[in-house]
Write a protein that binds this DNA or RNA. Structure first.
Lengths: 182, 182
DNA sequence: AGCATGCCTGACCGATCGGTCAGATGCCGA
DNA sequence: TCGGCATCTGACCGATCGGTCAGGCATGCT
């Protein structure tokens, strides 16, 4: 059954996203995707140059979402509003980001140090500031990025700090989180 | 070149661990492992029943390490000592655990809800208590497990709580971590 | 009606995978 | 010295992979 190109394109992306998230990139065959979409493997390769191209288009989306959040914060009417947007959007983004990109971590180590993901190290300056106030304490920045990326520094993702500096920061973070309420 | 069985066994495990961490399980062939060890693919399959058996033996180790930490805490001479061991060991274990099992997450989603990993939900009771004091606040427990597993709850790993309850706990955790020092 | 174009198919290709097997090699005790 | 066992090898197998290709079938324009 023939469909218009944009719809097929979107269908393939959606099916691939589900499959990749469930079975990983290498664990998903073009045949799997084609079966979900309801077409032949060759049809999938008619809409995408190769398997890598599907992945590339998929992984570009979290970057866009982070930029959108950044823009929403930039457009906030006052600092309190910005902080509220940042706090909720940050956690929400972290949760979604982790879930949607989990399959990449095992199969493509180092991917997050390369573009476009490496931009994540620099983009969220305003976002971190809105969230952590204007504190320039490294611990606040580390903590924010830790939450964003999900203790990602343990894999050396995003945070460009030697492990000797990261461990104490992480320890402070944990101790704080566990302090009893006053 | 022939080697004694225990040494070969260990060599293969070590090589496989490095390869899996770098390229994932499916991204590593038995040929890759054999080449690193310096023997034939068939020799690898002489020491291990199949590829899965290598993985199974590898992933059993973090579980052992967690049990060792638990035992060290149990053997502490006083609560302060126990807390010190827990705090440092906890972060260290989390970092190593994340690094050594990162390749599993994308390729085997749901693995951490199954034995032996699912035991991690129950084993660290003493560990969490030593770390968080004797607080029974759910937030403290969640925070401890979050650090242990690296925001793992975002993938639904380990922490058996509906997302509706996890999000606020995570938000509290972030806000606390970013509070200015008094 | 004829033709071009967009979308798609089934058949096929070479490469690589995990795993098997018969036999070679080396060592060690009888 | 000989036989048996542990260790290992190269050749081979069927399955699956990503990707290619020639052609089919609509649709819409001329």
């Amino acid at each position: 059954m023939t469909r218009a190109a944009p719809e097929r394109h979107a269908d393939i992306l959606a099916a691939a996203g589900r499959r990749f998230a469930q079975s990983g990139y290498r664990g998903t065959s073009l045949q799997d995707i084609a079966a979900d979409v309801g077409c032949s493997k060759a049809a999938v390769l008619y809409h995408f140059a190769d398997k890598k191209a599907i992945l590339a288009e998929l992984v570009a989306r979290p970057i866009d979402q982070l930029r959108e959040l950044d823009e929403r914060i930039a457009g906030a009417s006052n600092p309190a509003e910005a902080q509220r947007i940042a706090a909720e959007g940050f956690v929400d983004l972290a949760v979604r980001f982790r879930r949607e990109t989990a399959f990449l971590r095992g199969e493509f180590p180092g991917l997050f140090q390369q573009p476009p993901f490496s931009h994540l190290q620099h983009i969220p300056d305003r976002l971190v500031h809105a969230f952590a106030g204007h504190s320039d304490r490294p611990a606040a920045r580390v903590a924010a990025l830790v939450i964003l990326a999900g203790i990602a520094e343990t894999c050396g993702e995003f945070i460009d700090l030697p492990e000797a500096e990261l461990r104490p920061a992480l320890l402070v973070l944990v101790r704080r989180a566990l302090e009893p309420v006053n």
